[in-house]
Structure formats: C-alpha cells, structure tokens
C-alpha cells in the first residue's frame, strides 16, 4: 500500500517515530479493532484509533447520549443528548478520518452474537462500565482466541490489562466472580473523575497500538493508575492454573 501525499501529511508525526514509521503506519492502516462500549473510555479510544488510522474500527453500543455523559464522553456534544450514541459517534468519527472504515453494532454483546462480530477484528478493546460485561467479554475473547485490552475506572483510580488468550492471565484469573450486588462499584453510583477516564483510555490505546506493531506491551501485568496520588503501579500477574475461563489450552 502506497501513501497518498495527504496520508503522508496526516500521519507524518507517527511516520517520524522510529518505532512506527511508514512501515508501522501501513500496518495500522491494514489492521482492525473492535471497541465494546462508546462511553467514557470508548470515546477516547475510538477517536484515537480513528484519528491515527486503524484501517477498520468497529464499535458496539446501544445506549442514547445522556446529559450526565458529557463531562467525560467527549465524542458527544450537548446537541447529541437523546440521540443514539452510534449515530452521533459514527458521524463524528467518519468526519475525523475517512481513511478508516467504521462499523457500528447497535446491540448489546451476548454469547449468541459475539462470534459474528468478533470474527472481523484482530483485537478487542473492552470499554464497558460494569463487571457483568467485563466477565462476558473476557470469556468470549478467550473462547474465540482474540487478544483483549480491558480497562476500568472508578472515582480517581483505574486499571488496564492485556489478555492474550492461553498465554497471559485473563480477567477471570484475577477476579473470580462479579462482586456482591450490594457492594458493587460502578461509575453511575460511585462517581468518576473525567480526566482519569482519559488517562486510562490513552493507556489502553497505547497498548493496543504496541500490540498491533509487535512492540513491548504490559502483557503479563496489571497496570493501576491513581489520579489522586499521581501514582502508577505495574503488578506482575501469573495465569491461574485453575481458572474456569482459560485453564484448558
């Protein structure tokens, strides 16, 4: 694939990087990523992936834009309140970069529709906001052997992990089951500091790109960022040999 003059200009700052260059940029343009959830994390992940030219970007989302979304879900504007997120997001992303093929899935992911959606993509990025979805997406990624980047944020703290099925630990290796409904912490009832969502989403995108380009990633580690303490920790995690999701290789 040859670059047009416009592409050389558009992607010039990545082409200048030793670790990316023209070779890496071409690789990005011929790869595909599926983002699940176009909320706080998804907004930023989708905008970066589209902006720097991942060839094919899909996203799964079925909600409408709510006023309470706007401080962190920066894909949307006040005019979008009440609109389907997929419509507003599709338009914004396509306007950002028409090199990218944007696929939208106006549905909730489940056991039955996952295979048909996952099959088009090299990498899955979990940008959902609840435990139930995270367990489901982890299970499906392992089942269909798709690498997964999973991120989460609550209050001022967030974490990121990269799951390479049957090679690294999976979400289920660390968190065995969804927490008790009474003590469950989600953004909607615990609050979330908007810029920390941006930090976590940026780390997720960085890991996604490094994974695609074969650069060193956080593989085998859980990364934890605390915005209040301005502290980042990387914890080495091994696979759980008895993990109910990924024990059979």
């Amino acid at each position: 694939m040859d670059f047009s003059e416009e592409q050389i200009l558009r992607y010039s700052r990545h082409i200048l990087l030793r670790e990316i260059g023209g070779v890496g940029q071409r690789k990005l343009l011929s790869s595909s990523v599926l983002v699940i959830g176009a909320g706080g994390l998804g907004s930023i992940v989708l905008m970066y992936l589209t902006g720097f030219g991942i060839g094919r970007v899909g996203f799964v989302e079925s909600d409408n834009v709510d006023l309470s979304n706007l401080p962190r879900q920066i894909l949307y504007t006040t005019k979008d309140v009440g609109r389907k997120k997929i419509e507003a997001a599709y338009q914004r992303l396509q306007d950002m970069n028409s090199d990218v093929k944007i696929d939208v899935f106006d549905k909730r992911l489940n056991e039955n529709n996952a295979e048909d959606i996952f099959k088009y993509y090299d990498l899955i990025v979990d940008c959902t906001d609840n435990f139930e979805s995270r367990f489901l997406i982890n299970r499906l990624s392992v089942k269909f052997k798709k690498p997964l980047i999973s991120g989460a944020v609550v209050r001022f703290e967030g974490n990121v992990m990269l799951v390479i099925p049957y090679k690294t630990f999976c979400y289920n290796c660390i968190f065995e089951e969804p927490p008790n409904q009474i003590c469950i912490e989600t953004c909607s009832n615990s609050g979330v500091f908007a810029p920390v969502v941006g930090t976590i989403a940026s780390i997720m995108t960085t890991e996604a790109v490094k994974f695609i380009l074969g650069l060193q990633t956080i593989e085998g580690h859980l990364l934890i960022y605390n915005g209040l303490l301005a502290e980042m920790r990387r914890i080495k995690v091994k696979r759980d040999e008895n993990c109910l999701v990924c024990k059979n290789s």
Binding site: F3, I8, S12, I15, G22
Partner: peptide, 10 residues
C-alpha cells in the same frame, strides 16, 4: 522541515 525528514525516512 519536517517534510524533508519524513520523505527521506520513508
């Protein structure tokens, strides 16, 4: 610059 470098690098 920076197109000198970009073209040469490519």
């Amino acid at each position: 610059c920076p197109y000198t470098l970009i073209k040469a690098k490519l």
